[in-house]
Design a protein around this nucleic acid. Structure first.
Length: 977
RNA sequence: GCCGACUUAGCUCAGUGGUAGAGCACUCGCUUCACACGCGAUAGGUCACAAGUUCGAAUCUUGUAGUCGGCACCA
């Protein structure tokens, strides 16, 4: 078989995905086991306008690893995919396009034409993200792909809206909301980001008190204590004024009161008086409210109920007028007065300040650090505005989520710290959710108004007509917040309300002949609740919390058990990636350069929940790893004649020594006995550890385990140890082994094919373990292995076309973990490493052979004797002398091994005594440092007394070991003279 | 203002009461018939700082400094 020397990812990534998808491997129906447990994940639906970024790639990789792993374990697996209509961003994108192509605004063409345009756009460009998801290799079920704006999901949205309205959990009301003057829509609190203002100012404005000259008796005496530190302008002015401090002078045009703290002695006498509000000709009262902090500013606050949420609350308490002085584009309106109408809010601010200055009422302007709310999307400064909107009342919703957390610790966050606390705290302080948006792209609010303005909330217009008793209805113009539909995602996608129970449609995937009589369970029954949600921390509030609430409310059950919060991928300088900084790393470019599998390994290899700086070098090492796997397989395939992957009787993966059939080549293994037992033990240990790691979502742990098992154990040691057994020419007499051990030649197979089958079988198991992380490479290689078939599949998939993705995932068999083999192998490895060290330090050429003298106890001698050939090969020695004690010339390099064994390599004529001395000294020094620490600990009476006896014994044993080694090395050193 | 996370080898990061780990980079050697995207052998760290708990702390507690994040307030 001709196989290229280097792995070319693009070649493997080209064709497997299409076959997997076409063969229905991704659909749960591929699972033929009626008793299979379900496993489900829903994808956080990416925006239809979106393109793949590293955050997606990370999140998607983790979900796919879990899905592929569970599928291989035999679960009925659904990884549900879909996209989100992304109200604002999609509308903006299409608006931009419209302007560019036709120089028109949405208003020019009207609502209907505009939404048609968006659908057109969606159909044309919306597929980009789904193509990219395929490129990533995600094993999602495309037959169940969903879109938040499709009919079925829209129906679920209306259903939820109506039910919540009927229960009074959704209401329409007039509140101060976050208004984006550019996008001209209201936003929820979560779509507003606070940012430091570049140059904040605090303006001190004097408001004349009406009849002020007469209204100040007593004020001076009582406030005298404070006057020195904070001289009040009210005292000195001929006309009595009260000074208010504000960062937004333009809003004074909408002031309807000035408030002071009721306990503030300075102002007590002014309470109840009125102010002649400059520039407006209006008179407003001075009121007392606890909200005002006397210490802050001047202790007097201008109140603008229509343009500030705190002021609004004060306004409510005192029955103040709520005067709106701005338009929806943040220009001043007629109510602001003729001089200001039409001015932008910032121009109006300047003008107000100018006018105050002219009137001598501007006391001072101070620099002031403040943060301002910005529109998350367009960065425009948000205007708090009084507006009538739809809200979801959060009291009961919040309690559903809090109760679930308190009573069942659900959902479980991974990592739990800090997310559990952040989530809970947020819930506890939750305010009502503004759900209406002044957009056209989205779910139009299912509320209709009659001529009188009475509202009828209904699932359909027909229903509304029935309620209203008239046909003359207009539907609410607004649409719902995109997150409203996202909140229903885990159950709306599975058929909630739109797919009747027991009528699972036949169109989807399965061709399996189900019994005609039995009603199969619906998707909703099978897959809800989902098992785990994987997402970023930025949408814990926006999305996770709301899914929990709606899930509890409408399904009566949590939407998922676990929530994995992954970290953020930062650029190489540790900065967040952003469009404005243009420091994003395009996953598709990385795929192109290193391959999808290497990228997936890199992403999965970062610790769960921890941010990490992206480094191409990291992918490099996994690209190299992929190449290593490729070449290890290439090597096995080059030496695979007469061999085949063995179908392992134990599902958990135990290719060797299973005592099944007598003819089983694995069971009759000879020759490389220790190496075989060792690699099987390592394989099973690794499999166990990988499963354990995945169960707790320690993806990076699994990646490390697999990397080291494959590279270190399998490639560096196992392949090298058995190389001679599998590469010797077929025609030659087979090497050491069977003849000596008396295995009859008649035993059908020859030892070489057996060895070849063994390594192929180990390799095949390793590929299975790697598959969830590296799907393309492992499939590409697996299909090339001799002897593979769908007979290796998990029983649930036995009739499916052969693929590694349906084989059984090795879980590790404890009975095949062989500690003795591992420790014996450790001795062999130590021996070889020490000899190699001598060779390297003494500059012995690779081509120069040497002999190794070993003094060891009988047990270890046996181990070395049994692996004589491998030791010779890997240490490049031509002779091994085993004895109870060393008898070698002075001109030898020496070393000690664990277990009181010693080795010496005679180097007649090659030895550099000075070098050997320093080499030995170096080793002694290292051991001595450890010995001193051990002595320190063991001479500490309280340690010996209080530490567990086991621990003390461990240290004593280690101390003895080191002492022996040191004394041996010292003897050797002295012997050198 | 409140809450939280992080600070470990040159770099990027694991580890989390009992002898400090990986990958990359560095040093030395190797055209060893799977792989130079390789093989072999080294070197490199008072685990931010200080105090405490403990027989024992990188790991637990408290404090300090630096970095980053979330939330709230902002007249």
């Amino acid at each position: 078989m001709e196989i290229p020397k280097a792995y070319d990812p693009s070649q493997a990534e080209e064709h497997h995905y299409a076959r997997w998808e076409a063969s229905g491997f991704f659909a749960p129906e591929i699972n033929q086991d009626p008793n299979a447990e379900a496993f489900s994940i829903v994808i956080p639906p990416p925006n239809v306008t979106g393109t793949l970024h590293m955050g997606h790639a990370l999140q998607h990789t983790l979900m796919d690893v879990l899905t592929r792993w569970k599928r291989m374990l035999g679960y009925r697996t659904l990884f549900l995919v879909g996209v989100d209509h992304a109200g604002i961003s999609t509308q903006l994108m299409v608006t931009r396009q419209l302007k560019k192509d036709e120089h028109k605004t949405p208003r020019d063409i009207g609502r209907e034409a505009f939404t048609a345009k968006v659908w057109e756009w969606k159909n044309k460009y919306g597929g980009e993200i789904t193509r990219q998801i395929r490129r990533e290799g995600l094993s999602v079920d495309w037959t169940r792909e969903r879109f938040t704006m499709e009919d079925d999901l829209s129906r679920a949205v209306r259903e939820v809206f109506v039910r919540l309205y009927e229960e009074g959990w959704i209401y329409r009301g007039t509140r101060i909301v976050n208004w984006c003057p550019k996008d001209k829509t209201v936003l929820s609190d979560l779509e507003v980001k606070e940012e430091k203002a570049k140059e904040g100012k605090l303006y001190y404005l004097r408001y004349p008190v009406k009849d002020g000259e007469k209204g100040r008796e007593g004020e001076g005496e009582k406030g005298s204590g404070r006057e020195d530190e904070n001289p009040q302008s009210v005292i000195r002015d001929p006309q009595l004024t009260i000074t208010v401090a504000t960062t937004r002078p333009e809003t004074m045009l909408g002031d309807t009161a000035v408030a002071v703290n009721p306990e503030d002695e300075r102002y007590k006498t002014l309470i109840g008086k009125t102010i002649a509000l400059p520039l407006t000709g209006r008179e407003i009262p001075i009121i007392a409210d606890e909200y005002v902090e006397s210490e802050f500013g001047t202790g007097a606050v201008k109140i603008t109920p229509a343009h500030d949420s705190n002021d609004w609350e004060i306004g409510e308490r005192h029955g103040l007028e709520k005067l709106i002085v701005m338009n929806d584009d943040a220009t001043m309106n007629a109510a602001a007065g003729e001089a200001f109408a039409g001015l932008d809010r910032f121009a109006a601010r300047e003008k107000v300040v100018e006018e105050f200055e002219k009137l001598g009422l501007l006391e001072k302007v101070e620099d002031y650090e403040l943060t301002l709310p910005h529109c998350e999307r367009c960065k425009t400064i948000i205007e708090p505005l009084l507006s009538e909107q739809w809200f979801v009342k959060m009291d009961e919703m919040r309690d559903l989520a809090l109760k679930l957390m308190r009573e069942e610790n659900s959902p479980r966050f991974f990592p739990e710290v800090p997310h559990k606390k952040v989530y809970t705290t947020w819930l506890e302080n939750l305010r009502d959710w503004t759900i209406s948006r002044q957009l056209w792209w989205g779910h139009q609010i299912p509320a209709w108004y009659d001529a009188d303005g009475s509202v009828y909330v209904a699932r359909t217009k027909e229903e509304a007509v029935e309620l209203a008793g008239t046909n003359d209805l207009t539907q609410d113009e607004d649409v719902l917040d995109t997150w409203f539909s996202s909140a229903l995602w885990p159950f709306s996608t599975l058929g909630w309300t739109w797919r009747p129970v027991g009528s699972r449609q036949a169109a989807e995937g399965s061709s399996s002949p189900q019994s005609a009589n039995r009603q199969p369970p619906t998707d909703l029954e099978t897959f809800y609740p989902t098992d785990v949600l994987v997402t970023g921390r930025d949408i814990i509030f926006l999305w996770v919390s709301r899914m929990v609430m709606t899930g509890m409310k409408f399904m009566g059950e949590r939407p998922f058990d676990d929530v994995i919060i992954h970290g953020t991928v930062l650029d190489k300088n540790g900065q967040r990636m952003s469009k404005t900084k243009n420091n994003g790393i395009d996953p598709l470019v990385v795929f192109e350069k290193y391959g999808v599998d290497a990228t997936r390994m890199t992403l999965a290899g970062s610790a769960t929940g921890v941010d990490f700086a992206w480094r191409d070098e990291r992918v490099d090492s996994f690209r190299n790893f992929a190449n290593k796997i490729w070449n290890a397989t290439r090597f096995c395939l080059m030496n695979s004649e007469g061999a085949a992957v063995l179908s392992v009787p134990v599902a958990t993966g135990s290719p060797v020594k299973t005592e099944t059939t007598r003819g089983n080549p694995v069971a009759t293994a000879s020759g490389s006995d220790l190496a075989d037992r060792w690699i099987v033990s390592r394989l099973n240990k690794t499999a166990k550890a990988v499963n354990r790691a995945l169960e707790t979502y320690q993806f990076h742990e699994a990646v490390q385990l697999l990397y080291h098992f494959f590279w270190d154990d399998f490639c560096d040691w196992y392949i090298e140890l058995v190389k001679d057994d599998i590469t010797s020419c077929d025609t030659e007499t087979e090497g050491h082994g069977d003849a000596e051990l008396g295995i009859p030649q008649s035993a059908i197979r020859n030892p070489q094919s057996d060895a070849r089958s063994r390594i192929l079988t180990i390799l095949e198991q390793a590929l299975r373990l790697l598959h969830p992380f590296m799907p393309f490479l492992t499939e590409e290689l697996w299909l090339k292995l001799p002897g593979i078939s769908n007979g290796l599949h998990n029983a649930a998939y036995s009739s499916a076309e052969k693929t590694i993705m349906l084989t059984t995932f090795p879980t590790g068999d404890a009975s095949l973990i062989d500690e003795q083999a591992e420790s014996e192998m450790q001795s062999v490895i130590e021996l070889i490493t020490k000899v190699r060290n001598i060779r390297a330090e003494m500059n012995i050429k690779a081509s120069d052979s040497l002999s190794i003298h070993i003094a060891a106890d009988a047990k270890m001698q046996n181990v070395f004797a049994a692996n004589d050939a491998q030791i010779k090969k890997l240490a490049r020695a031509d002779k091994i002398v085993l004895a109870d004690s060393l008898d070698v010339p002075k001109a030898s390099a020496r070393a000690v091994l664990t277990g009181n064994a010693e080795i010496a390599v005679p180097l007649e004529g090659l030895i550099d005594f000075e070098k050997e001395r320093s080499r030995l000294k170096g080793q002694i020094e290292k051991l001595d440092i450890e010995l001193q620490r051990l002595n320190g600990q063991l001479s500490n009476a309280s340690f010996v007394e209080k530490a567990p006896a086991e621990k003390v014994k461990e240290l004593r044993d280690r101390k003895n070991e080191i002492e022996t080694q040191i004394s041996t090395l010292k003897e050797n050193l002295n012997a050198l003279g």
